[in-house]
Write a protein that binds this DNA or RNA. Structure first.
Lengths: 178, 178
DNA sequence: GTGATTTACTTGTTCAGACAGGAAAACCTT
DNA sequence: AAGGTTTTCCTGTCTGAACAAGTAAATCAC
């Protein structure tokens, strides 16, 4: 069990005829929103194809990276690290367990929780996952200078901050929140 | 329509404690990739919450926008317009039909296909969907000048183009492709 | 200590998205 | 006309993601 990876075929048919999908919303609706949407779609599809070859599904690689980096974690810790969902994490961990990449161990201090830890077999995956991320980064930043990369990053983070601010519960101008 | 700015929500619990989710990959892995990932997640979550209030799920609004804009379409046309998947479209159209937003009519010229058309009832949705997109755009671009918006758009499209290029099948340097 | 609340996790449901496989109609070639 | 191929759509399966609801353990308040 726990055969390391799927090494599949080496050259996938990463054929996305995406290019320029004309969407009504793009013209009059929201050019930025729609660009985010398209970029996200493509990026996700790309990551999915790279991950598929090493036997992971999108999202699972983040769990594994956290575990490799931080060691055994409770599910709730993983949920917080990834800003994910407890229900999703339950299933993701179960699938990773069935795939032989993680193991569950009852928490010695909390009988509600279990500790999730990477199996030794999973360590063969680590380099591959890191290669996937590095490849994705190379592809995304192809042809961009260091300054342009920094610029792009600042732009992405600014957009993100705008959404974070808008999503943040209430301004709560109350002087004494507590 | 197009109420000016984000002016925050008045009610929803759009509480994402996102903020700064520390992910291993962010530090050493791929800052740009990870920023795309986070931005996409937030953007999608936001769109989902706005759409939920008007009774749609993410993705369905795009189908409706195409139908409102272009009139009756075959499923395969919608698939191509959205760069989606035939299987997904089958189910999305079925759900939209059950929700009363679209109707199916057999194609007069092709007995394999049916034409999907928006119902009259759906037209009440149109303004709401447009408001959602416009709100999303306002939120995303809050505090950005016109030039900065154009800049951000260029950045997003450049990243997108990088992925498109990488996904495009082969360079095929063969002089005579045919 | 007893009882209420919170926390960690699970299950059920619904949705999008991707892939495999298949059916029927349309098409092309011979 | 006959046969093979392509197109259009559907179903099944598996995954992530989100929400609701529930269980068991821990914690807090009294």
């Amino acid at each position: 069990m726990t055969e390391p990876a799927a090494e599949a075929e080496q050259d996938p048919e990463v054929t996305a005829q995406e290019a320029t999908v004309p969407v009504p919303g793009a013209a009059r609706g929201g050019p930025i929103s729609h660009a985010i949407f398209r970029l996200a779609r493509l990026h996700r599809m790309f990551a999915g194809q790279l991950l598929r070859r090493i036997g992971l599904h999108p999202g699972q690689e983040l769990v594994m990276m956290h575990l490799w980096e931080l060691g055994p974690q409770r599910q709730i810790d993983l949920v917080r690290l990834m800003d994910s969902d407890a229900a999703t994490m339950t299933r993701t961990v179960r699938r990773l367990e069935q795939a032989g990449f993680v193991r569950r161990r009852p928490s010695p201090t909390d009988r509600r929780a279990s500790l999730i830890e990477p199996t030794t077999a999973s360590h063969a995956l680590r380099r591959e996952v890191e290669q996937v991320w590095s490849r994705l980064e190379d592809i995304s930043t192809a042809g961009l200078s260091g300054a342009e990369c920094a610029d792009a990053l600042a732009t992405l983070e600014r957009l993100e901050q705008n959404l974070v601010r808008a999503a943040t519960p209430p301004p709560e101008p109350d002087a004494r929140p507590q």
